[in-house]
C-alpha cells in the first residue's frame, strides 16, 4: 500500500510516500533522518498487519515543508511538481538513500 503522509497548502504539495508493501521494518530510515521524521509502528491503514512498518511521525506530518527543509539543498518548484532535476536530487536525500528496498519517495 502506498501511504502518502503530508499536506497541500498555498505554497505547494509536501508529501512523503511510503510503500508499505516494500517496507520490511528495518528502521534504517529512522536513523538516517536528521530531523526524526520517521518512526516504526503499526500500519494504521491495515489493522490486520502484524509486523511494524515505517511511517511519518504524527508530530511531523503537518510540517514536512519545514522538517525536510535542511536536507532539501535544491530548488523545489513552486507548483510542487517534479522536474527531472528535482527527481535526481530526491534520489540523494538521506531517507531515500537509506532505504535499500526503495520504499520512500518525496513529492517535492
Amino acid at each position: 500500500m502506498l501511504a502518502n503522509y503530508g499536506y497541500k497548502d498555498g505554497s505547494g504539495d509536501y508529501f512523503i510516500a511510503i510503500d508499505t508493501d516494500k517496507c520490511n521494518g528495518c528502521a534504517k530510515c529512522v536513523d538516517a533522518c536528521p530531523q526524526s521524521v520517521f518512526e516504526m509502528g503499526d500500519d494504521d491503514s491495515d489493522p490486520l498487519r502484524e509486523e511494524p512498518v515505517a511511517r511519518v511521525s504524527g508530530e511531523q506530518r503537518k510540517k514536512l515543508k519545514y522538517a525536510c527543509a535542511p536536507c532539501k539543498r535544491y530548488l523545489t518548484t513552486l507548483s510542487g511538481g517534479k522536474t527531472e532535476e528535482t527527481m535526481k536530487e530526491i534520489e540523494k536525500l538521506p531517507c531515500v538513500v537509506s532505504c535499500e528496498l526503495r520504499a520512500i519517495n518525496h513529492s517535492w
Binding site: 500500500m1 502506498l2 501511504a3 502518502n4 499536506y7 497541500k8 508529501f15 491503514s45 491495515d46 503537518k62
Partner: peptide, 12 residues
Amino acid sequence: GKVESFLMNDKC
C-alpha cells in the same frame, strides 16, 4: 476494500 494508496489532507 483493502487500501492500496491513500492521502489525507487534515492540515487545513
